[in-house]
C-alpha cells in the first residue's frame, strides 16, 4: 500500500535556513547541510529544499549548496527557487535532485511548464501554489497581484504537465495552529496529481485532524521540526494509530 508522506521543508534565504510566518518575517533557523544530515539519519520519506528569495532577489539558487544538501540524502529530494529555464532544471537534476519545485515561472508562463514536463517527464515537475482566500474564493498569491482562481490555476498546471502540486496555505504558514482543512478539501476536488499539503502543522494532533478530514496523502512541514521537539517519526506514529499507512 502506498504510504502517506511526511516531508520536511527547508526554506533558505541564500545563506541560511529561515522560517517565515504568513510568508513574512523570516527567522534564521540553521544550516541546510546539517539539517539535511539530521533528516537523512531520521530516514524521512523525502526532503524539500527551497530558496524562497531567489526569484525576488533575481538570482539563481546556489548549486554548490544544493549539491552539499543532496550529498547528505539517500532519500528523494525536491529543489526549488528561481527556476526559469530548461537549463536551470537540468543543472539541478544533474547533481541529483529528483524533482524541481516551480512557483513564479508557472504563473508567468504556463508553456514553460509544458516544455519542462515534455522534456524531463511530469514526474519531476512539482508546482508550488500559494493560496489565500480573497473575494470569497481561493486565489493564488502572486507578485503581479493578478486575481487568479485556485481552481483554474491548478487545472491549467495539470493540463500543462505538472506531476505534483504543493499547496501552501499562506495564512497558516508558520502559525502552528492547524491546517486549512477547507482549502485542502477544495483543492482535492480538482487535483488529480499527488498533492503535498503545507501550512499550519504544530503538533501531531493537527496531522491527525488533517488526515481524518481529507484524503491527504502527503504533508510538508517546517516550523514543527524547527521549533518543537516533535520529529517526522512522532507524526507517523500518531498517524499509524488512526490506521494510515506510514513508513516507519
Amino acid at each position: 500500500m502506498l504510504k502517506v508522506r511526511i516531508i520536511p521543508i527547508l526554506t533558505f534565504n541564500g545563506f541560511a535556513l529561515v522560517k517565515t510566518k504568513q510568508f513574512i518575517n523570516p527567522r534564521m533557523v540553521g544550516n541546510p547541510v546539517q539539517a539535511a544530515r539530521v533528516y537523512n539519519s531520521r530516514a524521512v520519506d523525502e526532503l524539500a529544499f527551497i530558496d524562497i528569495f531567489a526569484t525576488q532577489q533575481n538570482r539563481k539558487i546556489n548549486l554548490k549548496i544544493v549539491q552539499d544538501v543532496i550529498k547528505e540524502c539517500f532519500m528523494p529530494v525536491a529543489i526549488g527557487g528561481g527556476i526559469t529555464s530548461v537549463e536551470d532544471i537540468n543543472d539541478l537534476l544533474k547533481i541529483g535532485a529528483d524533482k524541481v519545485i516551480i512557483k513564479s515561472a508557472s504563473i508567468k508562463d504556463k508553456n514553460f511548464i509544458k516544455t519542462a514536463s515534455e522534456f524531463f517527464g511530469a514526474q519531476c515537475i512539482t508546482i508550488s501554489v500559494d493560496v489565500q482566500k480573497k473575494n470569497d474564493r481561493f486565489e493564488i498569491l502572486n507578485i503581479a497581484g493578478k486575481n487568479i482562481a485556485m481552481h483554474d490555476f491548478i487545472s491549467e498546471m495539470q493540463e500543462a504537465g505538472a506531476g505534483e502540486i504543493i499547496l501552501n496555505a499562506v495564512n497558516n504558514d508558520g502559525m502552528m495552529s492547524g491546517f486549512d482543512i477547507e482549502l485542502i478539501k477544495e483543492a482535492e476536488k480538482i487535483t488529480k496529481v499527488p498533492m503535498i499539503c503545507v501550512g499550519g502543522g504544530g503538533k501531531p494532533d493537527h496531522y491527525i485532524e488533517l488526515f481524518q478530514n481529507t484524503n491527504c496523502e502527503a504533508v510538508g512541514s517546517s516550523s514543527i521540526f524547527h521549533f518543537t521537539q516533535f520529529t517526522p517519526l512522532d507524526i507517523k506514529n500518531s498517524l499509524q494509530k488512526i490506521n494510515k499507512p506510514v513508513r516507519l
Binding site: 502506498l2 504510504k3 488529480k192 496523502e217
Partner: peptide, 29 residues
C-alpha cells in the same frame, strides 16, 4: 493520483535478489 509517487510495498514473486531484503518498501515515481 498519477504519477504513482511515494513509498510502496512490493510483493516478491520470484526467488532472486529481492528475497533476502527484509524491508520491502521502496520509492516509486
Amino acid at each position: 493520483r498519477i504519477p504513482h509517487l511515494g513509498w510502496n510495498d512490493i510483493s516478491v514473486t520470484k526467488q532472486g535478489f529481492l528475497s533476502p531484503v527484509d524491508q520491502k518498501n521502496f520509492y516509486f515515481i
